[in-house]
Amino acid sequence: MARIAVLGSGSWGTAIAVMADRHGHQVSLWSVFPEEVDCLRRDREHKKLLPGVMIPDSVRITNDIHTAADADLVILAVPSFAVRSTASMLRKVLPDGAVVANLAKGFEQDGTKRLSQVIAEELPQVRVVVISGPSHAEEVSRGIPTTVVSASHDQEAATLVQDILMNPDFRVYVNPDIVGVELGGALKNIVALAAGICDGMGLGDNTKAALMTRGLTEIARLGVKMGAQTETFAGLSGIGDLIVTCTSMHSRNRRAGILMGQGVPTKEAVGRLSTVEGYHATYSAKLLSEQYQVVMPITEECYQVLFNNKDPQKALADLMVRPKCSETEHTWLDK
């Protein structure tokens, strides 16, 4: 049994807390919002995000950040925009060598820093791990078989996360390529938004398959330029996460895209969903593509649709008439 502190009581945080408790761990679930803590304590259920999933009485629900002080594993389950502020709160709480695993998939808002970099800046004394892969909270919370990746520069820390969280319903693989794992998890949200737009426009399976395939090529193209390993993008945090996010209605990115494809203005569509990481990731990816001089046509068109009000039909047409090129690329086959 391990002591686990889950920071963030949204759908992912609640799901991972319920799962860890189910498999015998001592779990605390933290929220920065006292009113949310009161509701969760009273209802033992996140009625808005995970209706029907009961939080066992054995899960301690609290707004005291010091619950993380003596944890064997601290899990950050807050949205990307709250990662820095939450990590900052932990600076005087966590001891040297503590293991902090991050669940959010994105970049620091309005910037290009990966979230593991943000955590390392705020908490230089800890060992940072990233958990990523095709893993909807709605399914994890209900014990539906799921596989993810635990990635870190510190293999001992990545293996610790694997040892603690792996169970018959939740299989964990380790991967030393934290750059590739993070980029796969963040950038696939852009493609999921685009896939949703295609669905909202009433386009077919051919279009979505092409979008996902060429989207993965873009992700790998940038990732390799940033130092990631090509094989990572063929794994769970690459193609695995891309498939589930582009095809499932659990995906808030896809659902926001569907609204946009149906003509709902971008800000309104994003506002209807609680978290749409792909919106902010598109801005960050645009900056990264320019910084690393990487051609990312799908990302570019998504940026124009999201931030410059380009008509999605025109964006699709422009993608289809790009200059001829070969499908295979040196950056995809060999770093």
Rank of each mutant, 00 (worst) to 15 (best):
Q162T: 11
G180N: 10
E35G: 08
M201I: 10
G223Y: 00
D199Y: 13
A87N: 08
I119K: 08
V294S: 07
E290F: 09
I258E: 14
Q229S: 15
L7R: 03
S237P: 07
A192P: 06
W332D: 10
L103M: 13
Q117M: 07
H136C: 07
T67C: 14
G235F: 03
R254G: 01
V130S: 01
I178V: 05
E35R: 12
R272Q: 15
P312S: 12
E300I: 06
M1F: 06
V191I: 15
V118N: 14
L333S: 08
S85R: 15
M212A: 08
S326P: 11
G8M: 04
V295P: 04
K286A: 09
E301P: 10
V129N: 00
V128M: 07
P323Y: 11
S31E: 05
L7W: 05
D72L: 02
V149D: 09
R255F: 09
L40D: 02
A151W: 05
R221M: 01
V140D: 00
K92L: 12
Q291M: 11
V118C: 14
I239V: 15
I190W: 02
H280I: 07
Y303N: 03
I178A: 00
L29D: 02
V100E: 04
Q293S: 15
V244E: 08
C39P: 00
V191M: 15
V6Y: 03
V128R: 01
H66N: 14
D43A: 14
Q262L: 10
L306I: 06
R84E: 14
P145Q: 11
K47P: 01
T159N: 13
S141F: 04
V321Y: 14
F33S: 06
F33I: 10
A269H: 05
A151M: 06
G235N: 04
Y292M: 05
G263P: 01
K335Q: 13
R142T: 06
P176A: 12
